[in-house]
Amino acid sequence: MDATPIHELPRLPRRAAAGHKGTYGKVLVVAGSRGMSGAAVLCGRAALRAGAGLVQVASPVDVQEVVAAGCPAYMTTGIRQHADGSFGDGTAEETFDLARSADVLAIGPGLGRGQGTGTFVRSVLDEITDKPVVLDADGLFAVSPFTGVARRTAPLVLTPHPGEFARLTGDAAPTTDAERHKQAVAFARMFGCVLLLKGSGTLVTDGANLYRNTTGNPGMATGGSGDVLTGVIAALIGQGLGALDAAVLGAWVHGRAGDLGAGAIGQTALTAPDLVEHLPAAFRELETHW
């Protein structure tokens, strides 16, 4: 069975006149490690710019102060760590407690690939089955090759680039558009997840529907860009969009921010923080359809 193409973008939810910070979702970002604290900062800042009511960033205690200095508008929590600055033994239980008060989790940016990281990520996925999770970057590495997770009552969104997707599947990365479409749809259908396969013409599918994104440019091929996207998708889920709609709209607005940034400073100089700074203008375009 072929997937049904999605031709229209989902609508950005209108902000309620009587809304408050609790109305728009609490995002828990589980990210960062020594040397990669910036990934946690980018993800947390992007979630705020994408409309999340509350954002809490959980990172190893060694980098908590650095992450806290990255933005005054999110909360931070320090988690026990290994000697290498990554999440340590027993930290999954600490994360369980934080997750229970969140509406959605974003896991993976800058976690590192140190001892125990894979066990940590799988433990969180197996335990927190009733909260939507957006899994990216080192979080994807931790579950590769992907054989599925515990039965979930809430969605799982995976956001790999082609190399990460190849590790997830255990197969060679697709080289043609037809192969990308076929493999992406088959993977999402098999595991009951939402898959966002990055690249020129990013694909988003839940195995039954397929969307090909048209925004974005080569200047976005820079470190940290994916961390921004993770935060955006998590924030949209927290505001009430379904996982597929949040991934589709997130891909569009992330790429649109990149296009606006490239228009202002060019593609060569574009960096991930520039994407965060241009998210407001991209979202403003969506608000014109309210």
Rank of each mutant, 00 (worst) to 15 (best):
S200P: 01
R113Q: 14
R167N: 11
D206N: 15
A106T: 04
S101V: 12
A154S: 10
S200T: 06
T175A: 12
F120M: 09
V185Y: 06
L203R: 04
T176W: 01
D97Q: 13
N213I: 02
V134T: 07
V121Y: 05
G139Y: 08
A166Q: 06
S144K: 11
G139L: 12
T202L: 06
L196E: 15
V149F: 04
V204T: 15
A221K: 04
T117I: 15
D171T: 10
G112H: 08
P218H: 03
L195A: 11
G139E: 12
H161G: 13
V157M: 04
G148I: 08
S200M: 01
L105C: 06
H181L: 02
N217A: 06
T205A: 07
G163E: 09
A99G: 13
G112P: 10
N213Q: 08
R152N: 13
A166H: 03
N213D: 12
D103E: 02
F120R: 01
G116H: 04
G110H: 03
T129L: 03
R100E: 15
V149A: 14
V204C: 14
F165Q: 12
P160Y: 00
S200D: 06
V104C: 10
V124M: 13
D103S: 12
I107S: 05
T169Q: 11
D130S: 05
G192H: 03
R122V: 02
L105Q: 06
G192F: 01
R151M: 05
E179A: 14
F191E: 08
D138P: 06
S123T: 05
F96L: 14
L125E: 13
G223R: 00
A184P: 00
V104N: 10
V194S: 07
F120I: 03
V121P: 13
V133M: 09
V143N: 12
D97R: 14
A173S: 15
T222M: 00
D97H: 11
I128Y: 04
F187W: 03
G199A: 09
T214C: 02
P174E: 12
G199I: 04
I107T: 04
T117R: 10
L140H: 08
Y211I: 06
T205F: 03
T215G: 12
L140G: 14
R180N: 05
P109T: 02
G201A: 08
G223T: 10
G199E: 13
L111C: 07
V104S: 05
V121A: 11
A178I: 02
F96N: 11
N209R: 14
G108T: 08
G110M: 04
A154I: 01
G170R: 08
R180I: 03
L210Q: 08
Q115G: 10
K131W: 04
A142D: 13
G170W: 01
G148L: 06
T153F: 00
Q183G: 00
V124L: 15
P109H: 00
V121I: 09
P132R: 09
V204N: 10
T159Q: 12
G216E: 12
D126M: 01
F165I: 09
V185D: 15
C193Y: 00
M220S: 13
G216V: 03
T202W: 01
F165R: 06
F165T: 11
G148N: 11
A172K: 09
V149N: 07
